[in-house]
């Protein structure tokens, strides 16, 4: 079954499956223990190392191996975890499982431009005002009409000493917004990178650690970024390209990492994101097989009732017109051939002496004949006329 086309082959909106977009991705941690080595952490010894790769390697084991920050003796106690997702994803949730006590204060941010700029998705603190200048989240959710970064309670410490920081994109979004119809929501859930700022530890040390060190540190495992590879409704899966970049397997005449534009010849109408109800496939220009390129003209599109705006470029085979649907000057349609035939347009071949010009009727092929001349190409004298010696008046009345 093809998720992007129905049984009859008609396009329909399709989306990749929900995945952990962070799985296997490199995590950039601003602080990791083991350099220099301590008794409990040695970056050069795999048995005692706690690298950030443990955050996104296969997760869910009963005895997880944990990333650990360096010991933090004094303020600032900020540690940043950054996960480049490789391409745009549409987020559903983000979670981070802590091996030690979860932080008392943290912020979740996203980038939509591969780390050049960052915007907050949510804050987590028991002191929202002092920490982030925000009010704690109310039961009503966002106050405004659109999604916004709210301040949620800090994750609770669990009996095992750990805790879970969990965020759902719905948490910051007003109810009733529909992803298909809300560009604001589409923007809200789109991310190329995720960053978690751990800004204040809750307690001292790691309760699992036999050393029970006094200085602060963070320790976590299983960073999950639940989401769908963003393909704007035009692909059901993402693939690695030849350079190892993750890209959508675009359908519906679209292309680009996120299927965010129409393919060069598929510009008969503007690109649109697919919805559940409408595939909004990019349509190929109608050039009757005589052109390889076309461009979109908004004015023609409006005039056509928003049906067709493609204009064929460089019509070949002696054709012309917006759809290469008629013959260029000096050629006429051969009625015995289909419009898509390479030889659909025949040369007028008007006689250099008998014809008054080189351009024939584009439908019938009739050349304009001088007085007394006849024939499709004006190559004969009409009945009652005979050839003269004058090229200006090639046929004269028979005496």
């Amino acid at each position: 079954a093809d998720p992007c086309h129905d049984e009859g082959g008609a396009p329909r909106g399709c989306v990749p499956g929900l995945v952990n977009a962070a799985l296997g991705r490199e995590v950039l941690a601003s602080s990791t223990c083991g350099r220099p080595a301590t008794r409990s952490c040695d970056a050069s010894d795999p048995r005692r190392a706690h690298p950030a790769t443990l955050l996104t390697s296969a997760a869910g084991t009963a005895n997880p191996l944990c990333w650990r920050s360096d010991l933090l003796h004094r303020a600032p106690l900020n540690v940043t975890l950054t996960v480049p997702l490789g391409k745009a994803f549409e987020l559903v949730f983000v979670s981070l499982r802590f091996c030690s006590a979860p932080p008392a204060s943290a912020a979740l941010l996203k980038s939509q431009d591969h780390g050049r700029s960052w915007t907050p998705l949510g804050f987590f603190s028991s002191h929202c005002g002092p920490d982030y200048g925000r009010l704690p989240v109310s039961d009503d959710g966002p106050a405004g009409p659109g999604p916004e970064a709210l301040c949620f309670p800090a994750p609770q410490a669990q009996p095992d000493g750990g805790g879970l920081l969990a965020f759902s994109v719905q948490d910051g979004s007003p109810p009733g917004l529909d992803l298909d119809s809300s560009p604001v929501l589409q923007d809200w859930v789109t991310a190329t990178d995720i960053r978690i700022l751990l800004t204040r530890p809750a307690i001292l040390g790691d309760t699992r650690d036999s050393e029970a060190p006094v200085p602060y540190f963070y320790s976590a495992t299983e960073l999950q970024v639940g989401g769908r590879c963003k393909c704007n409704g035009h692909a059901s899966r993402c693939l690695l390209d030849t350079q190892g970049h993750l890209i959508c397997d675009c359908q519906h005449g679209t292309e680009g990492p996120d299927c965010g534009r129409c393919k060069p010849f598929y510009c008969d109408r503007p690109w649109q994101r697919a919805t559940v109800r409408e595939a909004h496939a990019c349509l190929a220009c109608s050039c009757n097989g005589h052109a390889r390129r076309c461009r979109f003209n908004m004015e023609l599109y409006r005039l056509s009732g928003r049906r067709s705006g493609g204009v064929c470029l460089n019509c070949r085979h002696n054709t012309a017109g917006r759809h290469c649907h008629y013959c260029r000057e000096g050629f006429y349609r051969d009625p015995g051939r289909a419009l898509s035939d390479r030889r659909a347009c025949r040369a007028c071949d008007c006689h250099p002496v008998g014809a008054a010009g080189k351009t024939c009727n584009q439908t019938t092929g009739q050349c304009p004949c001088k007085d007394g001349v006849t024939g499709l190409t004006c190559n004969r004298c009409a009945p009652g006329f005979q050839q003269s010696r004058s090229p200006v008046a090639p046929c004269v009345k028979t005496p």
Partner: peptide, 23 residues
């Protein structure tokens, strides 16, 4: 009646050299 095609060899281009088509 099917008339013969124009015979280019019969035309006298003396005064119309500039109109003479390239063959």
């Amino acid at each position: 009646e099917v008339m013969p095609t124009l015979d280019m060899a019969l035309f006298d281009w003396t005064d119309y050299e500039d109109l003479k088509p390239e063959v």
